[in-house]
C-alpha cells in the first residue's frame, strides 16, 4: 500500500487509505476488462455524452475523482444515473475504457451504499427487476402504474392520453406474460445473488 496519503477536500475531511484504491475496486467490479486505469483525461466521453448537461460531473471528471479516492462524492454523483448507455463514449474513447459498464458498476455500488440522491432511478430499476424476477418477462403496464403512482403521480394526468392510446392499440398487455420454467430462473438468480465478481 502506498504511504497513507491525505487528500484534503472541501467538507470531506481526510481520505481513508482504502479510498485510494477506489479506482481499482471499481475496475474489479466491472464486467469485462474496464481499462479504467488507462484514462488520459481527454474528455472524449464528456464531449460525447448526449445528456452531459444534466450531469453534475462529466464521466471524465468522475474518473479523476475515482483516482483521487473521492468515494463519497462519486457515489453521490447523479452522472451514472443520467447515463443512457448510448455507447458513444465507449467507441470513441482513445483508451478503450468500458465507460458505460463502469457506470453500471457505480450505480450498483451507490445502491449498496445507499448513497444515491434521487431515489427514482434505482426504484425504477428495482421495480423492473422485481417484475422480471416474478414473471421472467417484463410487464410494461404493471411497471408503469406502480412506478408512476409512487414517484410521479403528477405526471399521470398528462400521460393518460398516451397510456390510453397504448392500451387501446393493444401495445400494452393487461396481464403479464410468464415463462414456463420460472423455478429454474429463480434458482439461477438466487445462486447468482450470492456471487461477486473478483479476479
Amino acid at each position: 500500500m502506498a504511504p497513507a496519503e491525505t487528500v484534503l477536500t472541501q467538507g470531506a475531511g481526510l481520505k481513508k487509505p482504502e479510498d485510494l484504491t477506489l479506482l481499482h475496486e471499481v475496475a474489479e467490479a466491472t464486467a469485462g476488462v474496464s481499462h479504467l486505469e488507462m484514462c488520459i483525461q481527454c474528455g472524449t466521453c464528456g464531449g460525447s455524452c448526449p445528456s452531459a448537461a444534466d450531469m453534475d460531473h462529466t464521466p471524465r471528471a468522475l474518473f479523476a475523482m475515482l483516482r483521487a479516492g473521492m468515494r463519497e462524492e462519486v457515489l453521490r454523483s447523479n452522472t451514472p444515473w443520467i447515463c443512457v448507455s448510448c455507447y458513444h463514449c465507449v467507441v470513441r474513447c482513445p483508451q478503450e475504457v468500458h465507460i458505460a459498464d463502469v457506470m453500471y458498476t457505480l450505480k450498483s455500488m451507490a445502491i449498496k451504499a445507499k448513497k444515491y440522491t434521487d431515489s427514482k432511478p434505482p426504484d425504477f430499476s428495482q421495480t423492473f427487476v422485481g417484475m422480471v424476477e416474478t414473471f421472467g418477462r417484463s410487464f410494461e403496464l404493471g411497471l408503469a402504474t406502480r412506478f408512476y403512482l409512487t414517484h410521479q403521480p403528477l405526471r399521470l394526468p398528462g400521460m393518460a392520453g398516451m397510456g390510453l392510446g397504448m392500451l387501446t392499440k393493444k401495445r400494452m398487455n393487461l396481464t403479464p406474460n410468464r415463462i414456463k420454467n420460472m423455478d429454474q430462473l429463480t434458482a439461477i438468480l438466487e445462486k447468482a445473488k450470492t456471487l461477486e465478481l473478483t479476479s
Binding site: A29, A31, P80, S85, D101, Y104, T105, K107, S108, I111, P121, P122, F124, S125, Q126, F128, V129, V132, L185, I188, L189, K191, A192, K193, L195, E196, L197
Partner: peptide, 14 residues
Amino acid sequence: TEYLSINLIPAYSL
C-alpha cells in the same frame, strides 16, 4: 438496461 444497475452477476446470469 435495468438489471445491470442493481447487481452484476444476476444480471449476466439472467
